[in-house]
Design a binder for these strands. Sequence first.
DNA 1: ACTAATCGCTAAGCAGCTTAGCTACTAAGT
DNA 2: ACTTAGTAGCTAAGCTGCTTAGCGATTAGT
Lengths: 136, 136
Amino acid sequence: MIAVRALVTEAVALRRTLSRRSGLTETELDALDHLVESPSTPSELARLLDVSTAASTGVVDRLERRGHVERRKHPTDRRRLEIHVTDDGRAELLRHLTPMLHALTELDQRMTPDERETVIRFLSGAQAAFRAVEGS
Amino acid sequence: MIAVRALVTEAVALRRTLSRRSGLTETELDALDHLVESPSTPSELARLLDVSTAASTGVVDRLERRGHVERRKHPTDRRRLEIHVTDDGRAELLRHLTPMLHALTELDQRMTPDERETVIRFLSGAQAAFRAVEGS
DNA sequence: ACTAATCGCTAAGCAGCTTAGCTACTAAGT
DNA sequence: ACTTAGTAGCTAAGCTGCTTAGCGATTAGT
């Protein structure tokens, strides 16, 4: 399945391009991506991003300096923080992701329901295959 | 198309895992990958990897030190080198890629020809979409 | 109440990248 | 043929984002 490799290669290249275009590191973009889904603590973020908590502190520092996220006190645990994405951060991420999402949506709409189901099944399978290789 | 994002995320994670597992950087793995296809000069490699020629020198240094590639004189142009992957390098790459290729092949064989065609068409489309976003 | 674990952070060090600039060589212009 | 401009690979210096180690503050477990 050469097409999968090609897609992944292109996706990796795109990540780099978006990183340069936005002036954020790939890790920072990934962090924003997670935070848009839901707020999380620095240590949870570290786990999600697969980096050390020390690195996570730096990521939050840089995003905060740009106004893309803010540190809030955790409501119950005074050791913790909750990192929330700001409207600015949300807009920034969307601004860079929109063209891609748009292109994918268009591609999606050109498929019949049957085709869509086939494709999704394949993509999930490939994802599972990757995950299996990781954990072995 | 959430499934595409999920696949890409997993693929990126897998690249990291393979990098750690092999003790090579992702760039070095990419370099090996290109060199297995065909030998190339350091500057060409730099272009393929999207890094500076200075970085490319370092990549070749490290791969050479491990015995995965070798520097050969270019037959006609005495300024150039030709970087060739060694049997050792080929084996090393294959060793880490085989499980993934195996899993993907298996997945591939579970599809009917019609499905396969649908999937390939989609993957190519997605790849083109990514490329389009890059160049804009 | 005391011990152990967890949270976020700082400090120090490292690896891989960048740009700038060098020498050797080739290509192009006259 | 000779000079000029361009290209190839490399080194040097510096930056960035990561790592591990370890700290003080807070919470959880016994």
